[in-house]
Amino acid sequence: MLLQKVKKVPQRKCIVCQERDSKKGLIRIVKNKEGEISLDPTGKANGRGAYICKSSECLKKAIKTKALNRAFKIEVSDEVYENLLTQLEAYEQ
């Protein structure tokens, strides 16, 4: 009898609503060494990452509560938040 090894699915937590989901169920926002913040749909870009749900509502809440400021320990400009929102809406299509 062969025992099949069960693969562990990496879990991550949304920094906005605190819901846990698989790594693929959430979208990663990354801050690279230059301090640039962008959406990382691959989940493999270099830099500090923070995960949020794949919905623009969650990102809008992150903007309101300044969740990315806390996650990256820097001041994130409104321009960056708007850019992320545009990227996420394009990604949702």
Results as ranks from 00 to 15, higher is better:
Met1Arg: 15
Leu3Ala: 12
Leu3Thr: 07
Gln4Asp: 06
Val6His: 10
Val6Ser: 13
Val6Cys: 02
Val6Gly: 03
Lys7Val: 14
Lys8Met: 09
Val9Asp: 06
Pro10Glu: 00
Pro10Gln: 05
Arg12Asn: 10
Lys13Pro: 09
Lys13Tyr: 14
Cys14Asn: 08
Cys14Tyr: 14
Ile15Phe: 15
Ile15Trp: 15
Ile15Asp: 13
Ile15Asn: 08
Val16Glu: 14
Val16Arg: 03
Cys17His: 09
Gln18Leu: 14
Gln18Met: 01
Gln18Val: 02
Glu19Pro: 02
Glu19Arg: 11
Arg20Met: 10
Arg20Val: 12
Arg20Ile: 08
Arg20Asp: 07
Asp21Pro: 02
Asp21Asn: 11
Ser22Trp: 08
Lys24Trp: 07
Lys24Pro: 00
Gly25Asn: 04
Gly25Thr: 05
Leu26His: 09
Ile27Lys: 04
Arg28Gln: 07
Arg28Phe: 15
Ile29Thr: 07
Val30Gln: 08
Val30His: 05
Val30Cys: 08
Asn32Glu: 10
Lys33Glu: 15
Glu34Met: 13
Gly35Leu: 12
Glu36Lys: 14
Glu36Leu: 09
Ile37Leu: 01
Leu39Asp: 01
Thr42Tyr: 09
Thr42His: 04
Thr42Asp: 10
Thr42Asn: 03
Thr42Leu: 15
Gly43Cys: 12
Lys44Gly: 09
Lys44Trp: 06
Ala45Leu: 15
Ala45Arg: 12
Arg48Asn: 04
Arg48Phe: 05
Arg48Ser: 05
Gly49Pro: 00
Gly49Arg: 07
Ala50Val: 08
Ala50Leu: 09
Tyr51Ile: 01
Tyr51Pro: 06
Tyr51Arg: 03
Tyr51Asn: 07
Ile52Ala: 13
Ile52Pro: 11
Cys53Asp: 11
Lys54His: 06
Lys54Glu: 12
Lys54Gly: 08
Ser55Asn: 11
Ser55Arg: 02
Ser56Asp: 11
Glu57Arg: 04
Lys60Ser: 10
Lys60Thr: 00
Lys61Ala: 11
Ala62Arg: 00
Ala62Asp: 07
Ala62Tyr: 01
Ile63Glu: 11
Lys64Ala: 14
Lys64Tyr: 06
Lys64Glu: 13
Lys66Gly: 12
Ala67Asp: 10
Ala67Ile: 01
Ala67Glu: 14
Arg70Trp: 13
Arg70His: 15
Ala71Val: 04
Ala71Ser: 15
Phe72Ile: 01
Lys73Val: 03
Lys73Gly: 00
Lys73Tyr: 01
Ile74Asp: 07
Ile74Asn: 05
Ile74Glu: 14
Glu75Phe: 10
Val76Tyr: 06
Val76Gln: 01
Ser77Arg: 04
Ser77Trp: 03
Asp78Glu: 13
Asp78Lys: 04
Asp78Met: 07
Glu79Ile: 05
Glu79Asn: 07
Tyr81Trp: 05
Asn83Glu: 14
Asn83Gly: 05
Leu85Glu: 06
Gln87Lys: 09
Gln87Pro: 00
Leu88Tyr: 02
Glu89Asp: 12
Glu89Thr: 04
Tyr91Arg: 02
Glu92Pro: 00
Glu92Ala: 04
Gln93Pro: 00
